[in-house]
Design a protein around this nucleic acid. Structure first.
Length: 420
DNA sequence: TCTGGGGTCCTAGGACCC
DNA sequence: TCTGGGGTCCTAGGACCC
């Protein structure tokens, strides 16, 4: 078989996305050192920093208090996730004009498979510049575009194109492009891996490419093997290896909360767990997922963190059931009286639905889903207190379903069968 | 400096089964 | 007596990303 023709992948990365969106809502921020993520004295980290703030050494993931010390004149702004989602959707829409294979990798970056679009859009560099211009006029936002034969090359080149630039790595030039870069420029190589590689005398990607693949595998296992491929510009192993646009269902849904001040008050700790359970449960229902594993996350004052999980016989998407298990895990593992910094609730191990559910006819399953969605809708409209949680939602809904199925929303005019 | 929140993937040990 | 070898599931923790 002849070798497959090289792919053309775009990586589109919005420049200082959160900051730029905030500037659209408050133009007076333009040009100033801006820190998005919270107020200067708050517990938390920087979500994004403007280029003016970066000059002072401020960068994302840095504690807000540190940023305030480095750059006292910075303007601190709370994040607005709704705004970012709104603009992310606009970004997505623009990208869709250029390829049917668009994959949002996060709110502010995406991969496009542009293979074979030359006829329609012209050569890569020209379509990238058009994309860049259309993005600006449709969203008023700047982006950078990296072009390469793999996701990895596209990703690394968009980072090198920043800010507001386009960079194309020609097919065949991948290794040459990567060789002079620091190993930490490879996505997936963080602080720990970087230190290990430096300790081996490896600073640049070129050094890495010269190593024997076998040695890397021996030292770092699966990761070492992937790393060897990456040093040559290949999408070796893991998520990078999936086709662009391949839809991937979520593997876990979680919420967590860090207290502004640590607390050892059982009542407030439990009410936090309840709130988090409700948030998680709602998202399970929205997505139609049933989780079999429920996990508690608990972080103490000194930052020691533990996770405790429990797997159910029957998967669930009910707040009460999630809360019941997470509460038990909490009471069994919390050192009573010890101040808590963070609590988290995670669900995973998704399945289609509980066994009883599978046995129900589809119409009844749908009604069940709709009842839950209706309750969520009521909550949206009238507040969380409308639908009681503590008294056992499960029984309550069953009754409603049986009593008056026709009263449920979303009726499509189809004939409905009776209750139980 | 005093460390968010939402995710993914990998490793490693123990239980359990054949 | 002194103890196999897989495969799979579960749990805990950690590196990493935006």
């Amino acid at each position: 078989m002849p070798p497959a023709a090289p792919k053309t992948i775009f990586h589109v990365d919005m420049d200082a996305f959160f900051v730029s969106v905030e500037e659209l809502f408050d133009p007076s921020l333009k040009g100033k050192p801006v820190v998005v993520g919270g107020q200067r004295h708050e517990r938390g980290v920087v979500s994004a920093a403007s280029y003016a703030a970066r000059k002072f050494g401020v960068h994302s993931a840095m504690p807000l208090r540190t940023a305030a010390k480095l750059c006292p004149q910075a303007v601190f702004v709370d994040g607005h996730p709704e705004r970012y989602r709104e603009y992310s959707a606009k970004v997505h829409e623009v990208l869709g004009r250029f390829s049917p294979l668009v994959e949002m990798a996060s709110v502010d970056e995406a991969y496009l498979d542009m293979t074979g679009t030359d006829r329609l859009h012209g050569p890569p560099l020209r379509s990238a510049h058009r994309l860049h211009a259309e993005m600006k006029s449709a969203t008023q936002l700047n982006c950078s575009v990296g072009i390469g034969t793999s996701r990895l090359i596209a990703k690394v080149s968009s980072a090198k194109a920043k800010p507001n630039g386009v960079l194309w790595v020609l097919p065949g030039q991948e290794a040459k492009f990567l060789a002079p870069l620091d190993v930490s420029d490879i996505p997936g190589v963080g602080k720990v891996m970087e230190q290990k590689l430096h300790a081996m005398g490896i600073q640049r990607v070129g050094d890495l490419a010269r190593l024997e693949e076998r040695d890397l595998e021996e030292r770092f296992g699966k990761w070492g093997l992937a790393l060897a491929g990456k040093s040559r510009g290949e999408d070796a192993g893991g998520w990078f290896d999936t086709a662009v646009g391949e839809d991937t269902a979520p593997k876990s849904i979680s919420h967590e909360h860090t207290y502004n001040e640590d607390t050892a008050d059982v009542e407030s700790l439990q009410s936090t767990l309840m709130r988090l359970s409700e948030m998680v449960g709602r998202r399970l229902r929205e997505g139609g997922y049933f989780a079999r594993t429920i996990q508690l996350k608990l972080r103490y004052k000194d930052f020691t963190t533990l996770t405790r999980a429990h797997s159910l016989d029957q998967p669930t998407q009910l707040d009460t059931e999630i809360y019941e298990h997470v509460r038990r895990l909490f009471l069994h593992n919390w050192k009573r009286g010890t101040p808590v910094r963070l609590l988290g609730v995670q669900t995973s191990n998704f399945e289609m639905g509980p066994a009883q559910m599978d046995l129900l006819e589809p119409s009844r399953q749908q009604r069940w889903q709709k009842a839950l969605a209706a309750a969520d809708h009521l909550r949206d409209k009238f507040g969380e207190s409308t639908i009681g949680l503590a008294t056992g939602m499960k029984g309550g809904f069953r009754e409603r379903i049986h009593e008056n199925p026709a009263a449920l929303p979303g009726k499509s005019g189809k004939k409905r069968e009776g209750g139980a």
